[in-house]
Design a protein around this nucleic acid. Sequence first.
RNA 1: GCGUCCUUAGCUCAGAUGGAUAGAGCAACGCCCUUCUAAGGCGUCGGUCACACGUUCGAAUCGUGUAGGGCGUACCA
Length: 532
Amino acid sequence: MRNSVKKYLSEKFNRDVVIEIPKERSFGHFATPIAFSLAKELKKSPIIIAENLVKEFVNHSFFAKVEALKGYLNFTLSSDFLSSHANESLIAGENFGRNREKTEKILLEFVSANPTGPLHIGHARGAIYGDTLLKIGRHLGYKIDSEYYINDAGRQINLLGLSIFVIGNIEVLGREMKLPEEFYRGDYIIDLAREALLKFGESIFNDLNHDENISKLSHWGKDEMLIVIKNNLKAVDIEFDKYISEAELYSDWNRSLEKLKNNNGVYEVNGKLLLKSTNGGDDHDRVIVRENGIPTYLAGDIIYHNFKFERDYNKYINIWGADHHGYISRVKSAIDFLGYDSSKLEVLLTQMVSILKDGQPYKMSKRRGNFVLMNDVVDEVGSDPLRFIFASKTPDTSLQFDLNDLMVEDSSNPVYYINYAHARIDSLINKSSFSKSEIRQANLNNISDENRDLLFQALRLPEILEDSFNSRQTQKLADYLKNLASNYHSFYNSSIIIGSNYEKELLKLSLVVANTIRVGLKILGIEAKYRM
RNA sequence: GCGUCCUUAGCUCAGAUGGAUAGAGCAACGCCCUUCUAAGGCGUCGGUCACACGUUCGAAUCGUGUAGGGCGUACCA
């Protein structure tokens, strides 16, 4: 709707026209401050310009009313316009908002947590934010592939094996042994050690210097962790198109390195190879191959990004935790030296999360890792509220919330609140003596102004999705659904629907609202409830 | 120090490419079930948008600076 109005006005005035939604309802559905920008060129007061412009909109099919107010042009949409959109939305059903076919191909990488432990709550934020963006984008017709990059090569995997070995000795076999500071810890390592004992027998815990044993534990442990991670994700309904293994890509290292060298992106100092990452704005150049010939962590990212760009997408989006922001300049400079356009890579950061329960910092009971596990939270509050809270907050501010707030079953919990509106509508439809098809055929041309505003709001989903995706701000969709539900509850309370002279019309309006809620929630990864 | 994200009501957070009186939920206090789900609605209270200067017809929004906080600043991942 907004786009068609914007397009129409832009063509009419032969310039880009700013369209906004006035906060004050009596000002109409859309408004434009165009007279202010024309004032300078025409050297006339915006108020007079606006009054003159109004005259050009008499008997227009889009608008029931166009008026000039303090220099603004305010547009009230016509019932014809709204009611034809309402019909389109009901016909589209679950595809409401999907009408546009985009050609842009996007590769979206997110989570990519190391397979050395279960996902924690920070990962959950990135996972849900990324998956929500993915769902919005796909609904809008973008071709998006999702990937999880597994850091399954390098020291951290070896460290996982060592940690299982040492903790197994201490906690499972009751032996005396020192646990070095940098080792992984937490109940999940003990669980792994117990399973390892069953699988490999006690002998695997006998010799710390036995490389084969550690290697066995490392690789097996990594595979187990990957299963755990995939289960953590599945619990909030997230699945990736592809999992890319660093270890499998490693054979491509020489090819990537050649490219960097050919583009003059590396140099040698004391037997080490450095990447000229200062080109991308980094503080200093970074080592990519050590003196002993072993590539650093950054090398893996270089290979992976080479592999990404060889597959020719229009855009690459990475979602990283804020603690990785220092990596952006390194990876971007590497992409440039690989011979690709680093501006095609967009890195989105999610800030830290802290959790309260009963107003107190949430600590895992009986767990000795320092972070809150994603799985514990999902077990406690369920997938829907967690998905909603992460989708409803801007990713670039640190976030704190109380688990109790997510478990409450009243209007303070947006998931319940929105579902309740949806369930109420279904209940009305069932109570009515009219059939659904009779209701759908009702004519919405003569509904009241207030009800027309509700209809207008329910039909805004497509433009909200566009805005939400383009700005990468999923909370716009979440907020929109909450507001729509709120307005529906108001509507519900202010008029009796069943038995009214306008029963069919009011129910049709309700159906439009319900469809928008259902589609919107689905995109947020939540199935709307029909009964509560 | 440098980089980066942030600072809006007592609390948790929204505020569209700068625009018309700054928004919601919680908390507090009132009111509304002889009516379709009161798991709801309506209302009151509450803000020099951290601070200063600047750009603009117009700034919570843009720029510069100051103060405060998170994160990062490894030949660790």
